[in-house]
């Protein structure tokens, strides 16, 4: 019994909840207005795109992979929506096309990774440049705006008291949690992360899993792009610039091991919450965005260092 309680305390999720609690209390002391429900709801509109992309990123990092191209896929999808809308296509069609572009980008990532047998980081580094470059090339770095209200509602409007994007996120988390929990799909992902070769020899179609995950990542990025365009009422090639860093940091802070095989989706969501509150508070209270850049970079490195230390401790105890 004692052991079980100890185990529960040692979970990264417990740590995160305590940490978020402490941070929020401190923020409330410094600036009570920050914690008001209305303020929080308004500020939350900044995070849903990141949160949506964090779902597939968690799964990919669980397989010991990484996807650096998510921000660029967002850029390319945003531009697809914008350019097609400008050409006079009805918006539902333009959005579907941009989702297709995202799915295709993600599929291409997965295809290259499984065929070329090169580490995902170098493939997605290359496609990060290629997709962003295509977005810039197609649009000549010019923005498209003037979307109708029915579309911007997706990004700016509320539905049952929460932003539409929040509902999209909730549905996606629900589905993925259901898929992961005690189902072959979830077990397979953890197995690949623990030992890819062994998983391959045990007859699991590892390549199929990986292609699916990277395609899912492309789809989620495109979905985030559509919501982003609707929220800003502008489609521009630099949509989602630097998104990969925020997403990866959130997932890693959430206790998902960058070496694969360990971590949970709930943890990653808590990581997203932690990053979001910290970021918004720095902007809200000090109004210094460069501090955010610094903090985000350092947090990413420190959280991996911390993970290693923690793992070391656990390893030696057993």
């Amino acid at each position: 019994m004692k052991q079980r309680i100890l185990n529960m305390i040692w979970q990264p999720e417990t740590f995160l909840i305590v940490l978020i609690g402490i941070l929020l209390t401190a923020m409330g002391r410094l600036d009570a207005s920050f914690l008001q429900w209305e303020v929080q709801r308004a500020l939350s509109s900044h995070v849903w795109e990141l949160a949506i992309i964090a779902i597939p990123m968690t799964l990919i990092i669980l397989t010991a992979g990484i996807d650096l191209s998510v921000g660029s896929v967002m850029g390319l999808s945003a531009i697809t929506t914008g350019m097609l809308f400008q050409k006079g296509l009805p918006l539902p069609l333009a959005c579907s096309a941009s989702l297709l572009v995202g799915i295709f980008c993600g599929f291409l990532n997965g295809w290259f990774i499984t065929r070329m047998k090169v580490h995902p980081l170098i493939i997605t580094l290359a496609t990060m440049a290629a997709y962003r470059g295509m977005a810039e090339g197609i649009s000549h770095a010019k923005p498209v705006s003037g979307f109708p209200d029915s579309f911007t509602w997706l990004g700016q409007g509320d539905w049952f008291g929460l932003p539409v994007a929040a509902w999209v996120f909730a549905v996606m988390v629900g589905i993925v949690l259901w898929m992961m929990h005690g189902r072959a799909f979830g077990v397979g992902i953890y197995a690949i992360g623990h030992n890819e070769t062994a998983t391959r020899f045990s007859g699991l179609r590892v390549d199929r899993y990986l292609v699916t995950l990277y395609t899912f990542s492309g789809f989620a990025s495109a979905l985030a792009a559509v919501l982003f365009v609707a929220r800003r009422n502008t489609a521009k090639a630099d949509a989602g610039m630097g998104m990969e860093l925020g997403v990866i940091t959130a997932v890693v802070i959430g206790g998902v091991s960058i070496f694969g095989g360990r971590g949970t989706l709930i943890g990653a969501c808590l990581g997203v919450l932690l990053i979001h509150e910290t970021r918004e508070f720095v902007s809200w209270h000090w109004n210094r965005d460069e501090l955010n850049l610094l903090a985000l970079g350092i947090l990413l490195i420190l959280s991996v260092v911390f993970q290693k230390l923690l793992r070391h401790k656990q390893g030696s105890a057993i």
Partner: peptide, 18 residues
Amino acid sequence: AGVPSIIVTLGMLTALRG
């Protein structure tokens, strides 16, 4: 410290800009 180089330098990419 045993942190993968992509993580270290991705973090640095942003932190140094800050």
